[in-house]
Design a protein around this nucleic acid. Structure first.
Lengths: 227, 227
DNA sequence: CCTGGCGATTGATTTCAATCAACGAAAGAC
DNA sequence: GTCTTTCGTTGATTGAAATCAATCGCCAGG
């Protein structure tokens, strides 16, 4: 679980741009790439945070478990997303590859070193933390006060914004994952999706139930109440 | 609602220490004090964030509303707590005084100016945002996956840590506030507290139900599952 | 090819918390 | 001080989602 064979790549790291790295601060930062097989752990809760990750291809779930196995997924990480960024030393979630996933790894220490000298990078680390906070704040409202249909509608709208290619939402995660993200059971998620299908809000592509086309975004948005 | 008559105070700001202000960076920062009457708004959601606040005495609730009135309280701010800190310009919550509350106000702009030159201050702003993030992450687990009894137990343990004076938890907020923080109804909160009373976990002080003594912290902790 | 397992849907039933309702006690208003 | 309102508790009932259960279809593996 803890073995990470990081393939070193040639010079000129490129995804560091996402941290706002300027041309002047071309410090050598160890940047590598790694692929996790479907279902494998990227890191565990409370483990020391050695790396920061960026999804290249694939999808990752971040979750917390209660001792009896109840699971709450805090976020899904999709291509382009940076995750595992911890201000203090330890990870707050367990992260797992939902499907085969390739990530860029940046050594946390080296990133922090760069941040010390490069104000732009430091600012962007702050911005990312703030974005995570905003997501969590919105999600508290969803988990505390929204109905099952509202939650599923909100989920679809979020995914629509984040991973639509050619008008199709290709979900990498199972109904159980969605349920654990929304604080529901998989059956309730399934029923809500069926209901939205009946209502003409969405359609399924082909014979898989993980490819969804939104047919009425306005109606979907009206089902999720605004803050 | 928007009138804020800020009483300017004499030199030598003192609560700026909580931002990690060093002696060297004794820049003049406008620091004032203001009192909000019970039930009044400190700021509204989406309002531009002009000030950062620190509770001197009293208590504040931060919440989001759905259009139909459902409310989710994201946090309670108790004496010593800093709130209203926004990285970008606008507030994410509405903040209201739960009881008469006196706050220190710091102009956001001046704080940011100090942060630019004082690394210590900047670091502390980051640390505070991270602490808020951690709280929200833990609260997602509570809202998504815990039972009513577990939520109330967790709430009591949180308050015990934060505002116990002489072994008594003097709650400033109503049952409805607690309910809206925990994603429950006030009746469910009341029943859970009664149940904990029956179980000998807590007692009520005097003839008010807002003063609680924990009589069995171990049992209470066992009722709230660990992450 | 068959077979076993997983994922998803759908139906039947249960359950926990919400809702509806009544009451008593404390806090504010005048 | 009295009146009114708000707050909290408790009981009865309802209801939305959870749980239990069956079935179907799709892969993956032998």
């Amino acid at each position: 679980m803890f073995v990470r064979i990081a393939t070193e790549r040639s010079p000129r790291p490129n995804s560091l741009r996402d941290f706002g790295m300027t041309c002047s601060s071309n410090t050598i930062v160890s940047l590598s790439e790694f692929t996790y097989k479907k279902g494998t752990e990227v890191y565990g809760e409370k483990e020391p945070a050695e790396y920061v990750y960026q999804v290249k291809v694939g999808a990752v779930r971040s979750y917390k478990l209660l001792t009896d196995g109840r699971r709450q997924i805090g976020a899904f990480h999709l291509p382009g997303d940076i995750f595992g960024l911890e201000n203090d030393g330890a990870h707050r979630f367990t992260a797992e590859a939902i499907i085969d996933t390739t990530v860029h790894l940046i050594k946390r220490q080296s990133l922090e070193m760069v941040a010390k000298s490069d104000v732009m990078v430091a600012k962007n680390l702050f911005r990312m933390t703030t974005a995570n906070l905003h997501h969590a704040e919105d999600h508290m409202l969803l988990l505390g006060r929204k109905t099952s249909l509202e939650r599923v509608a909100a989920f679809l709208l979020e995914m629509d914004k984040r991973l639509t290619a050619a008008g199709v939402i290709a979900l990498p995660m199972s109904r159980r994952d969605i349920a654990d993200y929304l604080g529901l059971t998989l059956e309730t998620v399934s029923r809500a999706l069926s209901r939205l299908h009946e209502l003409g809000v969405l359609g399924f592509v082909g014979n898989t139930q993980r490819q969804i086309v939104l047919q009425d975004r306005a109606k979907l948005a009206s089902l999720d109440l605004q803050s």
